[in-house]
Design a protein around this nucleic acid. Structure first.
Lengths: 131, 131
DNA sequence: GCATTATTGATAATTCTTACTGAATTTAGT
DNA sequence: ACTAAATTCAGTAAGAATTATCAATAATGC
């Protein structure tokens, strides 16, 4: 992955704006520095940066995909009214609702964990292909 | 929410096919019973059923939104290769990766929790509006 | 500097989802 | 059952989010 001014700018925007921005939001900010930057460039770079593990892609289940400059293990709370995304640090998930209510002043209505990885079938298929 | 044959069919499809189907998949199955059913009808009903808590909407971060007939608390694993969605039951999240690897034969690359609810600001705003 | 390769901006195309409309179904009251 | 009111439907158009295409530009290695 080459260096490019635009890509660098896009990465910095996500790093420096911990609002879990959408591509559109990144685009708006990037235009201040690069007025001619294309929305396609923003999408392309956000996805490439995410593929290279420099950003995280998060689906907030409201509207667009969002991006996160924090790549360490942490979770997200999404407000169903303002749709903002907040960070959560918890070492366990027991009594989740009460804990979050008291610790973060956030009334949990539901939560959703999605674990990404490779399933047993695909792991086996992968080995079969190699052999 | 009224009864309708199509809505009933759509609900049953999601209940009876625990593959976390997309709207498109539900549509394909529904057409076997209702060849003239419209994709719009499928989307409308899936969303209405989800709003009424009879289904759960899940974002798999691969392509389309998916729907789940299981509405009790459980989590999801998404395979990054075949993109299928699997159910997970875990009473805690500590040592998540190892546990899932041994219990489900699924190699976790990353996981993402999104907690839905209402943030403190919006709770306050809500009260202010009432008063 | 110059050639090679990667990246960009601009735009078109795609994909997923929602909105609109008149016709058909369903519901509820008689 | 019959009818009126409300809901839902199929079909289609429109919208939003995202990706693909491609000639022009910028970055990298020599």
């Amino acid at each position: 992955m080459n260096y490019s001014q635009q890509r660098n700018c896009i990465k910095n925007i996500v790093m420096e704006n911990p609002i879990h921005p959408t591509a559109e939001q990144v685009y708006e900010i990037a235009r201040r520095s690069y007025p001619k930057i294309s929305l396609g460039t923003v999408y392309r770079n956000l996805n490439q940066l995410a593929e290279h593990g420099m950003l995280k892609k998060i689906c907030s289940s409201y509207g667009s995909v969002r991006f996160d400059g924090r790549i360490d293990a942490h979770f997200h709370m999404v407000c169903s009214e303002c749709e903002r995304v907040f960070d959560v640090e918890l070492d366990e998930m027991l009594r989740l609702n009460d804990k979050i209510r008291t610790k973060y002043d956030f009334a949990v209505s539901e939560y959703e964990i999605s674990i990404k990885g490779t399933c047993g079938d695909c792991l086996a298929k992968r080995e079969a292909t190699v052999v």
